[in-house]
Structures are given as structure tokens and as C-alpha cells.
Design a protein around this nucleic acid. Structure first.
Lengths: 259, 259
DNA sequence: AACAATAGTTCGCTATGCGAACAAAAGAAG
DNA sequence: CTTCTTTTGTTCGCATAGCGAACTATTGTT
């Protein structure tokens, strides 16, 4: 747990937020000692910070176990609410999902991941495991790649310097050099296709939405079983509709998002 | 901004979180002075806390404007992720929405509001304005009422003592006494019906899900245009299916939620 | 029952964070 | 454009907030 060099930095706040994120790294209910170890802080300090979070209602305490409380949603969703984003996107995802009879999603870039913020599907057999709030490695999702392709050279370098590649399938790219090549291609195409890299049997195509207001890189995608559509078919049949949807979303966002 | 009386309370953390919630009370981009006023802290303190939030990536700074960044989703969604909740609920909402051709939603209680955590709709004309992350006053939603009806007397009293009623329509209940009567009825019925109280022309019916693990009160509902279904029809045609869905969700949650 | 591990409490200490005041920069008004 | 006002940034003395270490109490394990 490192001390900031910035004189105006409030160490206790940094530490408290770090303790809060320990739940992302550990399990849903943890003891003081477990959290202290994950946070790399002494038990005494960790305890005080946790008790403060309990007092403020973000964390609960049951016996010796600490857990996250619903009030935490206030923090997370205030970001989405500040974007005036989700209802517009959800509406258009519903439309395209119905037109295509495929799953449609939106996510934002929270490197090294993408976080799903909206989904629509008309399939009764829904692909389990992905819902709003789900996170996937940005480098191995179509949405992540189109978003990364839009970062400045500086930002992209910073991210690539801090990431450890963990290819999810044997088909997935394995080196940072491959990442750069792929992002170059995605950048020039204006869309990205993921071909069974995240999951064997699954293809997806992603385009970006929005204008990077408030550091927000967002994208939408369509995912399909590989048995149903080839890469070429994704490009020919799906991409035009997806791009049209993105344009409609951007048009509506344009009236609420400052440029 | 009050000082806690608890000796183990870390004031700077409390203050920092309070500053973060200022964005819920103000606009999406604010100056230092605006935030300081909303937070009831001096400019110097507010500035240090904000700069700490900026340093940690939760808040951004553009010129003199502070804004929330996507990293904040990490905090909010860690709560949902800790529940292993959303994919199960979303799947069942999709099913019942398709069976009924009505909008289905799930929310959790973050008093004085409910926060929508999942939605499904097969309608092309989606009711705009409600999406994941949306908040509505708990006292004026069917889901809010069924959740409140399950609180302990103590908890309910605490909430009712701290709330200011703001009836959204002329039909809506106006006094705490009316709230109590309604919740008593809801408690004995095991479901709640909202009849054009939140919005003229809209009815909804809600049942609870889950077992209050980690202080989480959750519910699902079906909302319909009042022109389509009467209150009686909600009870006769919709309620059995909604209750069945809740049972299925609970059954699946039972295997991931501790009792 | 004995031992080990964990959680809670206490306390001396200092450095962290504070508020107040001043300086600089930006914005508003004429 | 100038002048005045407001806001933001910086500095600094101070004291208390928060810390870590040590001890005590409780819980868990063998």
C-alpha cells in the first residue's frame, strides 16, 4: 500500500477505497484478517476503515464477517446516472436484438476490463453468465478492442504496459505485439470482430458509441454462436445494422451529452 | 457535515465518500465551490478529497470541472457481483416477460429508493426512463412496498422516521399512517399492487425474491398499462406466474446464497 | 484442556489533515 | 479595455486524527 507523493492527497481516503475494493479481489464475506492481508494494511488500520464503511452503510458486519451492502449501488450508479446514458442505449439494443434475433450488449471500458451496462436478447436460451455488471477482459472482447483502438497513443501505452495477458482460449492472441497489430486493424476498420477468442463457439462484432465524454469509452456489440454466422456474414449482414444502431444512439446521445 | 462519535471512525474516509455522493445531489460536472457547498465542507478540505479521488481514478478533472469516471462502476458492481445474483434474475425475467408480453423488472432496496438491477421487455415501445441503475422512490413502487413490508419493525420505523413523502400523483398515498396501513396489507397478502400511484396509466405488481442475505431486500415486478389489465386481472392472471418465477429464482439463488 | 489464531482495546506518538489567510487566476460588469 | 468580484490554488502553523505496536480477550483448532 503505497503513499502518494502528492501533498494534497488524503491517505485515509485512498486507503479506505482500497479496502473497499478488497471485495473485488476476495470473496463476498470476509474476516478482518483476510481483508487486511488483501489490502496490505495493518489489522488496526483495516479495522478502523472497515468500521467507518460499516458506519456509513456501504459495508455490513455479521458476526466476524464483513460484506458489501446495497447502498454501494449509489456510488456505482451515480456514474451511469451522470451520463444519462442507459435508457437511450437499452432502447436501441432492444430494437436491434429483436430485428436480428441475436444478443446485443453495451459496455464501458474500465481497463483492464469492460463492464456490461446494458443487454438485450430475444432468445429464451440466454447465454448464462453475462448480465449487467459483468466484467470481461477488455483485450478479449470485441467491444473492448474497439474502445481500446480509440485511446490516445499515450493512454494505450499506459494500459499495455500494465497488463498481463491471459489468453482465454488457444485461439486467442498471446503477445502485446499481436495486440497492437489487431488494434491497428480495428482502428482502420472502425469495427472489431472477435472470432472464438474469448470462448470457443462464440463470435461477436463491436462498434463504439458516444464521444468519450467524462473519460467514457463505450461500445455495443452483437454476439452469435459461431455455428450460425461466419465472420463474413457478420460483416455483411450484421455490421451495417450495428453501425446504424450506433448512429442512432449517438444522435440521441448528442442531445444530452456535451461535445 | 457531522463528526462521528465512534472512536474508531476515520473522519477523512467518511468525508471523502460524502464528497463522492455530492454528484448524486448536484449535476454531472461541477466546480470545487459547488461541491464544497453540497458537501458542507471547507473548500480546502473538499479540494484535497476531490484531488485524492482524481488521483485514484474515480473522479476526473477537466479544467475546473470535476466529473465521475467509469472506474466508479467497480465499486458499485462489486456489490452485485458479490451477490452472484444478476444472471439468475435476468434469465427468469426474460422468460416471464416473453410469456406475458409485459415489462418485468428487478430491484433492490436502497432506502429511500429502489434501484433497478435488471429489466426485460419484449415490447418494441419500451417505457422510456427506466433502465438498470434507475432509482425510484421506494414508497411509490410495487417492489419497494413488498420489500419494505419485510423489514423488521425497528428498521421500518427508522426509515419512516427519516423520510419525507412526496406523492408523485394525486392518487398516491399522502401520510405515513396510510403507508403503514398499506404495508400491513402488503405484508399479509405477500404481494403488492401499485395502482396508478407512481404514474397515471401504469399499474404494477411486485413480489419479493431472495432471503435478505447481506442486508439485500430484492423484488421483481410486472408493469402494465392500466388500460390493458385491471387490478383484479393483475391478481388473477399475473400474480400466479410472478410468484412461480420468484420461486424459481429463489430455488436457484438458494444454491449460491447462504441461508 | 492446551495452544494457536483472530479480534478488540489501549495508548503514546507523530505526521496527517485541517482551517485560515494570502496569492494568483478567472470571470463578470461597465 | 479596465476594474472589481469571485473562484481556485498555495502556504503554513497547529493540533488532533489516525497510526502502529503491544497487550488483552475471544474464538477456533487439535
Amino acid at each position: 500500500m503505497e503513499r502518494s507523493t502528492h501533498p494534497d492527497s488524503v491517505q485515509s481516503l485512498t486507503r479506505g477505497l482500497h479496502v473497499l475494493t478488497a471485495f473485488n479481489r476476495g470473496s463476498s464475506r470476509m474476516t478482518l484478517s483476510e481483508i487486511a492481508v488483501l489490502s496490505d494494511l495493518t489489522r488496526g488500520t483495516t479495522r478502523r476503515l472497515l468500521l467507518t464503511l460499516v458506519e456509513n452503510g456501504y459495508v455490513g458486519l455479521d458476526g466476524k464477517f464483513f460484506y458489501l451492502r446495497p447502498q454501494l449501488l449509489e456510488l456505482g450508479y451515480s456514474y451511469l446516472a451522470s451520463l444519462s446514458f442507459n435508457d437511450i442505449v437499452q432502447k436501441h439494443l432492444n430494437l436491434i436484438a429483436e430485428q436480428l434475433h441475436e444478443s446485443a450488449s453495451a459496455s464501458v471500458l474500465v481497463f483492464p476490463e469492460v463492464v456490461y451496462v446494458a443487454r438485450a436478447s430475444t432468445n429464451r436460451v440466454m447465454t448464462i453468465g453475462l448480465s449487467v455488471g459483468s466484467k470481461l477482459p477488455a483485450l478479449y472482447t470485441s467491444m473492448g478492442r474497439i474502445m481500446l483502438a480509440q485511446l490516445s497513443e499515450n493512454e494505450l501505452e499506459k494500459h499495455l504496459n500494465s497488463v498481463t495477458l491471459a489468453p482465454p482460449t488457444p485461439r486467442a492472441i498471446k503477445t502485446i505485439a499481436e495486440v497492437r497489430t489487431e488494434l491497428e486493424k480495428v482502428r482502420s476498420q472502425g469495427y472489431s470482430i472477435l472470432d472464438q477468442e474469448l470462448e470457443i463457439g462464440l463470435r461477436s462484432i463491436g462498434v463504439s458509441i458516444g464521444s468519450h465524454v467524462n473519460d467514457t469509452y463505450a461500445a455495443i456489440n452483437i454476439s452469435v454462436p459461431a455455428s450460425r454466422l461466419s465472420v463474413e456474414e457478420l460483416e455483411v449482414k450484421i455490421l451495417p445494422m450495428l453501425q446504424n444502431t450506433a448512429q442512432q444512439i449517438n444522435s440521441e446521445l448528442g442531445s444530452v451529452w456535451p461535445s
